[in-house]
Design a protein around this nucleic acid. Sequence first.
DNA 1: TATAATAATAAGAATCATTCTCATTCCTGG
DNA 2: CCAGGAATGAGAATGATTCTTATTATTATA
Lengths: 131, 131
Amino acid sequence: MTKLQTTILDILYQTTEHLTAEQVFFRLKELMPSISLSTVYRNLNQFAEQKRIRRIQQAHKADYYEKNLIPHDHICCIRCGRITDLNVKGLSDFLQKNCDVPIISFDLTVNYLCHACASNLLETTQRKELS
Amino acid sequence: MTKLQTTILDILYQTTEHLTAEQVFFRLKELMPSISLSTVYRNLNQFAEQKRIRRIQQAHKADYYEKNLIPHDHICCIRCGRITDLNVKGLSDFLQKNCDVPIISFDLTVNYLCHACASNLLETTQRKELS
DNA sequence: TATAATAATAAGAATCATTCTCATTCCTGG
DNA sequence: CCAGGAATGAGAATGATTCTTATTATTATA
């Protein structure tokens, strides 16, 4: 483990956020200005392969990395794109019961509107009505 | 509707397959050699917006387009990547019951090993054992 | 400690799917 | 027949990610 690698892991372990490689890169840059984005990718992906972190891939968006290794799903705000953990208990069994092939794994993303975005939208609407 | 647009829709309507823009493009090229890939994309996405076809987005893979508009999920072979329709009845209710925010929509892809790939793998294994 | 072997890095090129731009072509209605 | 709007083809631009390579760091060991 190089110092860099430790620092990358630290960044993820010090938060419950889901971070993109670029976000990790910028936080890292404050501490080690010479860091390169491809190195961040390489290390994050390595850690994910080693199951030390989890990589969440989503269509047409940057991948997210998180420290939570316990299997779980995600909700994703359709407005700001931020993703949050979601636990749907019994989902795996439910799916296998309703599916006639052996499931190797599955990816679920639930789209919703987060609190912050919901109130922002409301504000905008009200402002429009006043004007 | 131009002739091109009709032909694009026809290609999707004459199959139950899930096609990428590129696959549609190549089939189209047989009929209209001057067709351009960006035009295929533009039209497919337009049709998807108009809900005349469905676009399926997956992380790190080309998008698929299909004619089946009835909400359903997909199983995706981890080896060949081909995707097939899947109906998990009651999934939507099950999810909403286990999720404390209002669900706007969700995307589920189940990974499995398709028949063809399973027997290919078996063959390869046996060949290895014999040699 | 010096050194050879090995691993990790920075920088930027390459890739892939997709979208965008824009000059050209095609239609359609008057 | 012609003007104006819509659609097209070609290729440039984009964004996220991976790959390449020359350089630097780290280890193990003699």
